[in-house]
Protein backbone atom coordinates (compact mmCIF):
# COMPACT_ATOMS: atom_id res chain seq x y z
CA UNK A 1 0.00 0.00 0.00
CA UNK A 2 1.24 3.45 -0.89
CA UNK A 3 2.01 5.98 1.81
CA UNK A 4 -1.21 7.89 1.41
CA UNK A 5 -4.14 5.70 0.37
CA UNK A 6 -6.16 8.75 -0.70
CA UNK A 7 -3.58 9.75 -3.29
CA UNK A 8 -4.38 8.10 -6.63
CA UNK A 9 -1.82 6.69 -9.02
CA UNK A 10 -1.98 8.37 -12.41
CA UNK A 11 -3.16 6.30 -15.35
CA UNK A 12 -3.70 6.89 -19.04
CA UNK A 13 -6.78 5.84 -20.95
CA UNK A 14 -5.09 3.86 -23.72
CA UNK A 15 -8.16 2.39 -25.35
CA UNK A 16 -11.89 2.82 -25.27
CA UNK A 17 -14.45 0.50 -26.70
CA UNK A 18 -18.07 1.51 -27.06
CA UNK A 19 -20.27 -1.29 -25.73
CA UNK A 20 -23.75 0.24 -26.00
CA UNK A 21 -25.08 3.74 -26.66
CA UNK A 22 -24.33 4.76 -23.07
CA UNK A 23 -21.67 2.27 -21.98
CA UNK A 24 -18.00 1.92 -22.82
CA UNK A 25 -15.01 -0.06 -21.62
CA UNK A 26 -11.93 2.00 -20.75
CA UNK A 27 -8.48 0.45 -20.72
CA UNK A 28 -6.19 2.15 -18.20
CA UNK A 29 -2.42 1.89 -18.02
CA UNK A 30 -1.02 2.94 -14.70
CA UNK A 31 2.00 5.20 -15.04
CA UNK A 32 5.33 3.99 -13.74
CA UNK A 33 4.18 0.67 -12.35
CA UNK A 34 3.91 -2.92 -13.42
CA UNK A 35 0.13 -2.72 -13.48
CA UNK A 36 -2.30 -3.86 -10.85
CA UNK A 37 -2.62 -7.20 -9.16
CA UNK A 38 -6.21 -7.97 -8.24
CA UNK A 39 -8.75 -10.67 -7.57
CA UNK A 40 -11.79 -10.83 -9.87
CA UNK A 41 -14.62 -9.01 -8.14
CA UNK A 42 -12.45 -6.28 -6.61
CA UNK A 43 -12.97 -2.66 -7.53
CA UNK A 44 -10.95 0.50 -8.06
CA UNK A 45 -11.71 4.17 -7.48
CA UNK A 46 -11.21 6.15 -10.69
CA UNK A 47 -10.63 9.91 -10.56
CA UNK A 48 -11.52 12.36 -13.26
CA UNK A 49 -9.68 15.36 -11.86
CA UNK A 50 -12.05 18.25 -11.42
CA UNK A 51 -15.08 15.98 -11.38
CA UNK A 52 -14.31 13.59 -8.57
CA UNK A 53 -13.91 9.93 -7.98
CA UNK A 54 -16.21 6.95 -8.46
CA UNK A 55 -15.95 3.21 -7.76
CA UNK A 56 -15.87 0.73 -10.65
CA UNK A 57 -15.51 -3.04 -10.68
CA UNK A 58 -12.44 -4.13 -12.55
CA UNK A 59 -13.76 -5.78 -15.70
CA UNK A 60 -10.54 -7.01 -17.33
CA UNK A 61 -8.83 -10.36 -16.99
CA UNK A 62 -6.68 -10.85 -13.89
CA UNK A 63 -4.15 -12.61 -16.11
CA UNK A 64 -3.49 -9.38 -17.95
CA UNK A 65 -1.20 -7.37 -15.68
CA UNK A 66 -0.20 -4.45 -17.88
CA UNK A 67 -3.58 -2.69 -17.76
CA UNK A 68 -6.96 -2.70 -16.07
CA UNK A 69 -10.31 -2.11 -17.69
CA UNK A 70 -13.50 -0.68 -16.29
CA UNK A 71 -16.86 -0.77 -18.00
CA UNK A 72 -18.69 2.44 -17.41
CA UNK A 73 -22.22 3.63 -17.96
CA UNK A 74 -22.54 7.35 -18.55
CA UNK A 75 -24.81 8.36 -15.70
CA UNK A 76 -22.99 10.95 -13.59
CA UNK A 77 -20.32 13.63 -13.52
CA UNK A 78 -17.30 11.35 -13.26
CA UNK A 79 -18.53 8.93 -15.92
CA UNK A 80 -19.44 11.78 -18.28
CA UNK A 81 -15.94 13.19 -17.82
CA UNK A 82 -14.38 9.82 -18.69
CA UNK A 83 -16.42 9.67 -21.89
CA UNK A 84 -15.42 13.22 -22.80
CA UNK A 85 -11.75 12.58 -22.13
CA UNK A 86 -11.52 9.45 -24.23
CA UNK A 87 -8.22 7.92 -25.30
CA UNK A 88 -5.15 9.75 -24.08
CA UNK A 89 -6.94 11.17 -21.06
CA UNK A 90 -5.20 11.04 -17.70
CA UNK A 91 -7.15 9.73 -14.75
CA UNK A 92 -6.38 8.65 -11.20
CA UNK A 93 -6.64 5.10 -9.89
CA UNK A 94 -6.79 3.91 -6.28
CA UNK A 95 -7.07 0.31 -5.25
CA UNK A 96 -7.79 -2.48 -5.78
CA UNK A 97 -10.20 -2.52 -2.87
CA UNK A 98 -12.46 -5.05 -1.23
CA UNK A 99 -12.87 -8.77 -1.41
CA UNK A 100 -13.41 -10.53 -4.71
CA UNK A 101 -14.90 -13.89 -5.67
CA UNK A 102 -13.56 -16.80 -3.58
CA UNK A 103 -11.90 -18.52 -6.52
CA UNK A 104 -9.96 -21.16 -4.61
CA UNK A 105 -13.10 -22.24 -2.77
CA UNK A 106 -15.06 -22.48 -6.02
CA UNK A 107 -12.50 -24.68 -7.78
CA UNK A 108 -13.74 -28.18 -8.62
CA UNK A 109 -17.34 -26.99 -8.53
CA UNK A 110 -19.91 -26.02 -11.14
CA UNK A 111 -20.52 -22.31 -11.56
CA UNK A 112 -23.86 -20.72 -12.30
CA UNK A 113 -23.16 -17.07 -13.13
CA UNK A 114 -25.95 -14.57 -13.42
CA UNK A 115 -25.37 -11.05 -14.70
CA UNK A 116 -27.84 -8.23 -15.18
CA UNK A 117 -27.10 -5.20 -17.35
CA UNK A 118 -23.76 -3.62 -16.70
CA UNK A 119 -23.62 -5.84 -13.60
CA UNK A 120 -21.89 -8.38 -15.78
CA UNK A 121 -18.71 -6.26 -15.49
CA UNK A 122 -17.32 -7.87 -12.30
CA UNK A 123 -18.09 -11.30 -13.77
CA UNK A 124 -15.88 -10.72 -16.80
CA UNK A 125 -12.55 -11.15 -14.94
CA UNK A 126 -13.94 -14.26 -13.27
CA UNK A 127 -15.07 -15.70 -16.60
CA UNK A 128 -11.65 -15.02 -18.16
CA UNK A 129 -9.98 -16.68 -15.19
CA UNK A 130 -12.27 -19.70 -15.41
CA UNK A 131 -11.68 -20.09 -19.14
CA UNK A 132 -7.91 -19.89 -18.60
CA UNK A 133 -8.23 -22.59 -15.93
CA UNK A 134 -11.11 -24.44 -17.53
CA UNK A 135 -10.18 -27.84 -16.12
CA UNK A 136 -10.33 -26.54 -12.56
CA UNK A 137 -14.08 -26.02 -12.78
CA UNK A 138 -17.06 -28.23 -13.59
CA UNK A 139 -19.99 -27.09 -15.72
CA UNK A 140 -20.05 -23.33 -16.14
CA UNK A 141 -23.23 -21.54 -17.14
CA UNK A 142 -23.54 -17.81 -17.70
CA UNK A 143 -27.01 -16.29 -17.69
CA UNK A 144 -27.01 -12.73 -18.88
CA UNK A 145 -29.94 -10.36 -19.09
CA UNK A 146 -29.97 -6.92 -20.69
CA UNK A 147 -32.77 -4.42 -21.21
CA UNK A 148 -32.74 -4.56 -25.01
CA UNK A 149 -30.46 -6.18 -27.62
CA UNK A 150 -28.71 -2.81 -27.96
CA UNK A 151 -27.81 -2.90 -24.25
CA UNK A 152 -25.85 -6.14 -24.45
CA UNK A 153 -22.21 -5.47 -23.55
CA UNK A 154 -19.13 -7.59 -24.35
CA UNK A 155 -20.62 -8.85 -27.62
CA UNK A 156 -17.22 -10.06 -28.90
CA UNK A 157 -16.41 -11.76 -25.63
CA UNK A 158 -19.79 -13.47 -25.43
CA UNK A 159 -19.06 -15.17 -28.75
CA UNK A 160 -15.60 -16.26 -27.61
CA UNK A 161 -16.88 -17.39 -24.21
CA UNK A 162 -19.48 -19.64 -25.88
CA UNK A 163 -16.64 -21.90 -27.03
CA UNK A 164 -15.74 -22.67 -23.41
CA UNK A 165 -18.81 -22.17 -21.27
CA UNK A 166 -22.59 -22.32 -21.64
CA UNK A 167 -23.78 -18.77 -22.38
CA UNK A 168 -27.51 -17.96 -22.35
CA UNK A 169 -28.98 -14.55 -23.01
CA UNK A 170 -32.27 -12.81 -22.50
CA UNK A 171 -33.48 -9.27 -23.00
CA UNK A 172 -36.35 -7.55 -21.22
CA UNK A 173 -37.64 -6.18 -24.49
CA UNK A 174 -36.63 -7.57 -27.88
CA UNK A 175 -36.53 -5.84 -31.25
CA UNK A 176 -37.05 -6.99 -34.86
CA UNK A 177 -33.58 -8.59 -34.96
CA UNK A 178 -33.87 -10.45 -31.67
CA UNK A 179 -34.46 -14.20 -31.96
CA UNK A 180 -33.51 -15.14 -28.40
CA UNK A 181 -35.34 -15.24 -25.10
CA UNK A 182 -37.19 -12.28 -23.71
CA UNK A 183 -37.97 -11.59 -20.09
CA UNK A 184 -35.94 -10.74 -17.01
CA UNK A 185 -32.94 -12.90 -16.21
CA UNK A 186 -34.86 -15.14 -13.81
CA UNK A 187 -36.67 -16.71 -16.82
CA UNK A 188 -33.35 -18.30 -17.78
CA UNK A 189 -33.18 -20.00 -14.39
CA UNK A 190 -36.25 -22.07 -15.28
CA UNK A 191 -34.21 -24.17 -17.72
CA UNK A 192 -31.09 -24.54 -15.62
CA UNK A 193 -30.36 -28.03 -14.39
CA UNK A 194 -27.47 -28.13 -11.95
CA UNK A 195 -26.88 -29.90 -8.68
CA UNK A 196 -27.02 -27.09 -6.12
CA UNK A 197 -24.85 -29.13 -3.77
CA UNK A 198 -21.95 -29.00 -6.22
CA UNK A 199 -22.53 -25.57 -7.67
CA UNK A 200 -21.72 -22.02 -6.65
CA UNK A 201 -24.08 -19.35 -7.89
CA UNK A 202 -22.43 -16.05 -8.59
CA UNK A 203 -24.41 -12.91 -9.37
CA UNK A 204 -24.06 -9.27 -10.05
CA UNK A 205 -26.69 -6.87 -11.28
CA UNK A 206 -29.16 -4.29 -10.07
CA UNK A 207 -30.46 -4.74 -6.49
CA UNK A 208 -33.88 -5.87 -7.67
CA UNK A 209 -32.29 -8.63 -9.76
CA UNK A 210 -30.20 -9.91 -6.86
CA UNK A 211 -33.29 -9.82 -4.64
CA UNK A 212 -35.37 -12.00 -6.95
CA UNK A 213 -32.60 -14.25 -8.22
CA UNK A 214 -31.56 -15.05 -4.65
CA UNK A 215 -35.13 -16.02 -3.77
CA UNK A 216 -35.22 -18.25 -6.81
CA UNK A 217 -31.85 -19.86 -6.02
CA UNK A 218 -33.05 -20.69 -2.51
CA UNK A 219 -36.11 -22.37 -4.03
CA UNK A 220 -33.81 -24.32 -6.33
CA UNK A 221 -32.04 -25.74 -3.29
CA UNK A 222 -28.92 -23.60 -3.12
CA UNK A 223 -27.68 -23.24 0.44
CA UNK A 224 -26.95 -19.69 1.64
CA UNK A 225 -23.19 -20.22 1.51
CA UNK A 226 -23.37 -21.14 -2.18
CA UNK A 227 -25.23 -18.00 -3.18
CA UNK A 228 -22.67 -15.29 -3.91
CA UNK A 229 -23.25 -11.76 -5.13
CA UNK A 230 -21.46 -8.48 -5.56
CA UNK A 231 -23.44 -5.71 -3.85
CA UNK A 232 -23.73 -2.16 -5.04
CA UNK A 233 -23.51 0.75 -2.59
CA UNK A 234 -21.98 4.21 -2.68
CA UNK A 235 -18.28 3.76 -1.90
CA UNK A 236 -16.28 6.96 -1.53
CA UNK A 237 -13.12 5.86 0.24
CA UNK A 238 -12.80 2.09 -0.26
CA UNK A 239 -11.41 1.58 3.23
CA UNK A 240 -14.41 1.43 5.53
CA UNK A 241 -14.14 5.04 6.69
CA UNK A 242 -16.59 7.24 4.81
CA UNK A 243 -19.62 5.24 5.93
CA UNK A 244 -21.74 5.43 2.79
CA UNK A 245 -21.61 1.73 1.95
CA UNK A 246 -22.46 0.46 5.42
CA UNK A 247 -25.04 -2.33 5.79
CA UNK A 248 -25.57 -3.40 9.37
CA UNK A 249 -22.10 -3.66 10.86
CA UNK A 250 -20.44 -4.36 7.51
CA UNK A 251 -18.82 -2.12 4.95
CA UNK A 252 -19.45 -3.19 1.36
CA UNK A 253 -16.17 -1.61 0.24
CA UNK A 254 -13.99 -3.46 2.70
CA UNK A 255 -15.93 -6.58 3.76
CA UNK A 256 -17.39 -7.02 0.25
CA UNK A 257 -18.36 -6.11 -2.40
CA UNK A 258 -18.58 -9.89 -2.85
CA UNK A 259 -20.62 -11.54 -0.13
CA UNK A 260 -22.13 -14.90 0.49
CA UNK A 261 -25.84 -14.72 1.24
CA UNK A 262 -25.02 -16.45 4.54
CA UNK A 263 -22.78 -13.53 5.49
CA UNK A 264 -25.40 -10.83 5.07
CA UNK A 265 -28.63 -12.67 5.73
CA UNK A 266 -28.52 -12.01 9.47
CA UNK A 267 -27.63 -8.31 9.25
CA UNK A 268 -30.09 -6.01 11.01
CA UNK A 269 -30.45 -3.83 7.96
CA UNK A 270 -31.57 -5.87 4.94
CA UNK A 271 -28.75 -6.22 2.41
CA UNK A 272 -31.03 -7.35 -0.40
CA UNK A 273 -33.66 -4.83 -1.35
CA UNK A 274 -36.05 -4.33 -4.20
Amino acid sequence: MRGNPYLPALAKIVKTRRETPDTATFRLEIEGSGGLEFTPGQFIEVSAFGYGEAPFSISSSPLERSYVEVTVRRVGNVTRALFNMGEGGVVGVRGPFGRGWPIEEMKGQNLLMIGGGIGIAPLRPLIEYVIAHRNSFGDVILLYGARTPKDIVYKEELERWREHIDVRLTVDVGDETWRGRTGVVTVLLDDVEVDPRETYSVQCGPPIMIYFVTRRLVEMGFTDDRILFSLERLMKCGMGFCGHCMIGGKYVCRDGPVFKYSEVKGLLEPALVR
Binding site: Y6, S47, F49, G50, Y51, G52, E53, L234, K236, C237, F241, C242, G243, H244
Partner: peptide
Protein backbone atom coordinates in the same frame (compact mmCIF):
# COMPACT_ATOMS: atom_id res chain seq x y z
CA UNK B 1 -18.78 9.79 7.81
CA UNK B 2 -17.51 11.99 5.01
CA UNK B 3 -18.05 12.91 1.41
CA UNK B 4 -15.24 13.48 -1.06
CA UNK B 5 -15.41 15.81 -4.03
CA UNK B 6 -13.23 17.90 -6.33
CA UNK B 7 -13.10 21.68 -6.28
CA UNK B 8 -11.66 22.81 -9.60
CA UNK B 9 -10.46 26.32 -10.37
CA UNK B 10 -12.64 28.26 -12.80
CA UNK B 11 -10.53 27.35 -15.83
CA UNK B 12 -10.14 23.75 -14.74
CA UNK B 13 -6.34 23.85 -14.87
CA UNK B 14 -5.96 23.07 -11.19
CA UNK B 15 -8.03 22.18 -8.19
CA UNK B 16 -8.25 20.27 -4.98
CA UNK B 17 -9.77 17.09 -3.69
CA UNK B 18 -11.68 17.81 -0.54
CA UNK B 19 -13.37 15.72 2.06
CA UNK B 20 -16.15 17.13 4.17
CA UNK B 21 -18.27 15.77 6.98
CA UNK B 22 -21.38 14.05 5.71
CA UNK B 23 -24.58 12.92 7.39
CA UNK B 24 -26.32 9.56 7.21
CA UNK B 25 -29.57 11.53 7.60
CA UNK B 26 -29.21 13.08 4.15
CA UNK B 27 -31.11 11.48 1.28
CA UNK B 28 -27.99 11.70 -0.89
CA UNK B 29 -25.99 9.60 1.57
Amino acid sequence: CFDVYDEPSLDGSSGKRVRVWDSCHFLSF
